[in-house]
């Protein structure tokens, strides 16, 4: 399958869980035959992956069905970037020079919304802002996209960081269940489980 093709998730509603055939995805998951390490890679690693010197085994099926990710939800969950932010980011590439007003007309957003997201995208790191002088006083803000290759890598690293944090939560959830079996708790597992995660939230 080429990079631009939509993965074939089979039949069913968009939100329904379904099985994924890991053999024909553009990514690959490998597990260590020796320890519990499981890794995700977006490239076809010639010769496979290794963990402490041992060749890792490619995972070809997942016993758990999953819901197909929606790009809008992924960007919102991982980066807090809602659709207007993404729309604006996409319009900054290749359609300029545009004013915030022209961008707002094109996307059917309020000009104030466009300005807000332009600054948010600068803070987030997908756009850069440069202030130029104006002959008649005041200044001109130039918003420009970061290098596309840099954007590709940064968004992937950012997403992996988010996925790593999510994976840590899943690991902790599994450890909580294991702890519960080994310890003598008065409360039920559900109470212990949610108390553990509510503690985590308070720590933040």
């Amino acid at each position: 399958m080429s990079e631009n093709e939509t993965p074939d998730w089979g039949s069913g509603d968009d939100n329904s869980r379904r099985e994924v055939d890991l053999r024909d995805r553009e990514y690959a998951i490998y597990r260590c035959v020796d320890c519990n390490n499981v890794v995700l890679t977006m490239q076809d690693c010639d010769g496979g992956m290794t963990c402490h010197g041992e060749t890792m085994e490619r995972v070809t099926e997942s016993r758990l069905d999953i819901r197909p990710p929606d790009v809008r939800q992924v960007l919102l969950d991982a980066f807090g970037l809602p659709k207007p932010g993404l729309d604006i980011c996409l319009c900054v590439i290749g359609d300029g020079p545009l004013s915030p007003g022209e961008l707002a007309d094109r996307l059917d957003y309020e000009e104030g919304t466009v300005r807000m997201y332009l600054n948010e995208l600068v803070e987030f790191g997908l756009l850069e802002k440069t202030q130029l002088n104006r002959e008649t006083g005041g200044y001109v803000n130039v918003y420009h996209s970061i290098d596309l290759e840099e954007m590709r890598e940064e968004t992937l690293v950012g997403f992996y960081t988010w996925a790593g944090e999510a994976a840590s939560l899943i690991e902790e959830a599994n450890l909580t269940k294991a702890d519960y079996q080994n310890e003598d708790y008065d409360e039920g597992l559900d109470t212990v489980f949610w108390e553990r995660f509510s503690d985590n939230k308070t720590d933040e």
């Binding site: 900054v92 545009l98 300005r115 104006r134 006083g137 130039v142 918003y143």
Partner: peptide, 15 residues
């Protein structure tokens, strides 16, 4: 700046 005008939004701000 060495950036392409096609890839910019320009906001003129009065003082």
């Amino acid at each position: 700046l060495d950036i392409e005008l096609e890839n910019v939004v320009v906001d003129v701000v009065d003082e």
